[in-house]
């Protein structure tokens, strides 16, 4: 997604303003002039300056580019599905992996991604199962990372 400098200028100015408002709530450092609000406040001021410069640049070029330019890949359904599936897989992993467990979630995730990237179903299934077991062995057995077992707890090896 290509966003014009004008839109970026507003977004950055908004972020800077939010930071500036929020740092007002920071308490001063006892006995010192310079508390925890000084440094983030300076960064926010820097962002405001950048926003003004971007605004000026974006205003000059306002006729040349749309505010938000759609990308060619947005029109290809397969590519859109592939992109958002990655995001969905990571979000879902964050949400459910502790309860359901690493192995089932990883197998489903790999299978879904392989199918979305047009791998043949039997190959995709084999890669999903073997890949999950390989990564699990390396990290759980080899590096002793406590990957969650979840529903497979009774089978833990």
């Amino acid at each position: 997604m290509r966003i014009s400098d004008l839109v970026w200028a507003f977004a950055i100015a908004l972020l800077a303003a939010l930071v500036l408002v929020h740092v007002q709530s920071f308490p001063p450092m006892p006995g010192q002039k310079f508390g925890p609000a000084v440094y983030p406040g300076l960064i926010a001021c820097g962002l405001l300056v950048c926003a003004v410069l971007l605004l000026a640049r974006g205003w000059k070029a306002r006729r040349q580019a749309a505010l938000i330019e759609p990308m060619a890949w947005w029109r290809d359904r397969d590519l859109v599905v592939g992109f958002w599936l990655i995001v969905a897989v990571l979000a879902a992993y964050t949400a459910v992996s502790e309860a359901i467990g690493f192995i089932p979630v990883a197998i489903v995730a790999l299978l879904a991604l392989n199918l979305a990237f047009r791998v043949r179903p039997p190959v995709a299934l084999a890669v999903a199962v073997l890949g999950t077991l390989l990564v699990h062995t390396i990290f759980y057995k080899g590096l002793r990372v406590p990957l969650p077992w979840g529903v497979l707890k009774s089978l833990a090896w």
Binding site: L90, L110, F117, V127, G131, V135
Partner: peptide
Amino acid sequence: NILMPLILL
């Protein structure tokens, strides 16, 4: 297409 999902995992 097989490598990238594994990298993600």
